[in-house]
Design a protein around this nucleic acid. Structure first.
Lengths: 366, 366
DNA sequence: ACAAGTATCCAAAACGTTTCGGTACCTCAA
DNA sequence: TTGAGGTACCGAAACGTTTTGGATACTTGT
């Protein structure tokens, strides 16, 4: 039915696809070819190249020479099939990653990729635009033995991906963790965002702010409640009342942060500080403040969470909480590779302390 | 020798890796299992699932039901080995991608990933920190049949990767292209950076600037000469002299741009505008101007190339030339997939016209 | 001269799929 | 009754490795 015609493109493509040396189509050279050229069996060839000691040194050298001459490269797929191991980890980009401004998933992915390559693992990346596609993508690459384990990012409450992977005993590590009321019975790496938001809110309270708005994230995300808790914790610790109408929800994108901040400031002019669940929305909030003719850090203080690169370079600089995203990617990948290799990771749940970064969007103490 | 012990981790890991339903280790169910359960041959099972019409409709339904019940997922590796096709494209992150501020490769990768997924291709990503490792990575995944084709980014003059891929007739597409004095005998997608830099320099000349510095990129990069040409073209068109001492080299990172701009301004105080080969260095140049107490856009105008997200949000906004990086990623991936599928792409060399984006770093006409 | 040991090699099976070339049976027309 | 044509099925080979379990020949010690 499907007959892919490998190398079909060689015929019609205008560009010269012919080797410079021989006018012949490239045919992969296999172990069999090397064996034939060396005059010995496939087994011996394999073992010679594999460094086993039951092959004569002279033979080995001959085989190695010939393999090099022929440009032999082992077929990775065949090797993986036989080894029942893909030496690959999988990562699915959620839709949010495709926002042009997204830094989070880019950084996470690079951290993952770096560690994977350092451990001779490849990284298989898939982009999916809907929740269902995403789950299907995990099923395909995981159950299809395409990868030895997967990394799950941006957890949802009651996350179907985690449920699936757990049910099937499939190796995985989560960047993020469950919502507070759910069990954390899987390996994860996360920043303690409750403590993080608490820090930045406490920082503003310390500056004398009493009316502090909060831009929250979509309720279906697992981390949303942690950050909201952090906000409430800080208020409670300072004996400030929690007001539900000081909390608005955004979708983590910059624009929604701008919208949310405009709403907050219009409805509650007494608000002098706004803390946002993430930096992108905080930057939008800064724009909102500026658009109504007020000054960030003077009239309204703004705080975020993440410390994406933009936070440092925005004007004024954004006070925020640093979440080491690249490093989280590294840790997640390391943990997954340990699990795949059958080594028990020392810790199966890593919670990183985030760090408050004070910049000019905080303004001065009132 | 190497005996990976798949599922070894299940024994020691503290976390419950046992299925909720059955207290049994997850064993992948194969076609053979389904066939046995359905009481027919592997062949028939395969063809039933494959939608071939030489199997009785009743049988097919029975097989499909059983396959679902058993949670059958085809082993992708086996399928790929037999089909001699990986349905995967490869991309190697160069070292530069791991700079925390890098936006270029992140965006390119996302564009690639998006198109790949839309065409049922997976994307294999590898990170390599040196030139040699990078070439080896290409050899391993390409000649090892791990991927059906690869994407090459950040081309060098006389790029060994391109030479290798061309010599082996391996499907590839380049993001970028050869240096001006080298042949472009391979499929590529690039922005016309010569025209782009020409535009921004001409823009400054139009504003009345006569002493314009240029921060160039490392000479081993293929695009360096194009951008330098663009600078010279614009000067020549306006009958302004080209002065070699107005040109300094950076390494594309922000810090080197700052360094370079400081040098330029110290050595040639008459310079009133600086154009940089890329945005990151231009942002560094803005910092340099500010650090010597001058104002960007007033005392010294700054221009960049790329239009990374930061360019819009910096203060003042950076005048630059927009290179649609995400879109280039999409085009590159589309072209590669066409080639892999044996369809001749309409164009094998796409040169995109970049767009001048004037922001406040240009200042006003003198 | 024989047994035991050692060095070197290899055929066959296995990994899980798809495809090739059948076979067996049934039905219909001549 | 025969042959043609169609339907439904399947065994075996193939993809390119690695591993298993010998086999062969040579050496060594008695």
């Amino acid at each position: 039915m499907r007959n892919p015609k490998r190398f079909g493109h060689l015929q019609d493509c205008k560009i010269a696809y012919f080797s410079l040396k021989e006018d012949v189509l490239f045919m992969p050279v296999t172990l069999k070819d090397v064996a034939a050229a060396a005059g010995c069996s496939v087994t011996t060839t394999s073992r010679a190249l594999g460094g086993y000691d039951d092959v004569n040194e002279q033979t080995r050298e001959r085989i190695i020479t010939i393999a090099k001459e022929l440009g032999y490269q082992p077929n990775v797929l065949a090797r993986q099939l036989q080894a029942q191991r893909a030496d690959t980890i999988g990562f699915v980009f959620p839709q949010a990653a495709h926002q042009p401004d997204d830094d989070f998933f880019s950084l996470l992915m690079k951290g993952i990729s770096y560690v994977a390559s350092n451990n001779q693992f490849d990284l298989l990346v898939s982009s999916q635009l809907t929740q269902e596609d995403e789950l299907r993508a995990y099923q395909r690459i995981a159950a299809g033995r395409r990868v030895d384990g997967v990394i799950v990012a941006r957890t949802l409450r009651n996350d179907p991906r985690i449920k699936y992977l757990k049910n099937n005993n499939y190796p995985f590590v989560v960047s993020g963790r469950s919502a507070p009321d759910e069990p954390d019975d899987f390996p994860y790496v996360d920043a303690d965002s409750q403590a993080g938001i608490r820090q930045v809110v406490a920082h503003f309270i310390g500056y004398g702010h009493e009316h502090i708005g909060f831009i929250s994230s979509p309720p279906e995300l697992a981390f949303t409640e942690y950050r909201l808790h952090g906000y409430r914790d800080a208020l409670a610790a300072a004996n400030l009342p929690y007001r539900a109408d000081y909390v608005v929800h955004g979708d983590l994108q910059r624009e929604s942060g701008q919208q949310a901040a405009e709403d907050l400031l219009r409805r509650h002019p007494q608000i002098t500080a706004i803390v946002s669940s993430n930096d992108a929305m905080a930057l939008g909030a800064m724009a909102a403040v500026q658009s109504i003719g007020k000054q960030v850090g003077v009239d309204v203080a703004i705080g975020g969470f993440d410390d994406i690169p933009l936070a440092r370079y925005s004007v004024p600089g954004l006070t925020t909480v640093r979440q080491p995203i690249y490093h989280i990617g590294e840790l997640v990948a390391e943990m997954l590779i340990q699990i795949i290799n059958g080594e028990a990771p020392e810790e199966t749940g890593i919670l990183l302390e985030p760090e408050l970064i004070v910049r000019d969007s905080s303004g001065q103490p009132l």
